[in-house]
Amino acid sequence: MESLKNEIKKLIVDSLGLEDLSPGDIGDDVPLFGDGGIGLDSIDALELGVALRKKYHLSIDSGDSGAREHFASVNNLVKFVQIRGQKTED
């Protein structure tokens, strides 16, 4: 659980090329998008989707409007990955 959390934080930093952010700077419940959070943009959302799909074989194409909610914070992503993902080798 804790390690998945850290893994996802590292994935966010690495896959988006965020220069002034380290995994430890991302709070578990801090909003990833929009004001008052990490400040990721709409293109980051797409890129992050690609990275998650590659790493966990997540299908985010099920048409659920919950996508926005899954991507809201690290905690939400962790839940999402636990329910829907299949971990693969790096």
Binding site: G17, D20, D35, D41, S42, I43
Partner: peptide
């Protein structure tokens, strides 16, 4: 850097769409 850049980003976000804010 983080704090200074964050406030610059918030300042630009008043007028620019998110993808245009310098990374």
């Amino acid at each position: 850097r983080r704090a200074v850049i964050d406030s610059l980003r918030r300042y630009l976000a008043e007028n620019y769409e998110d993808v245009l804010i310098p990374r």
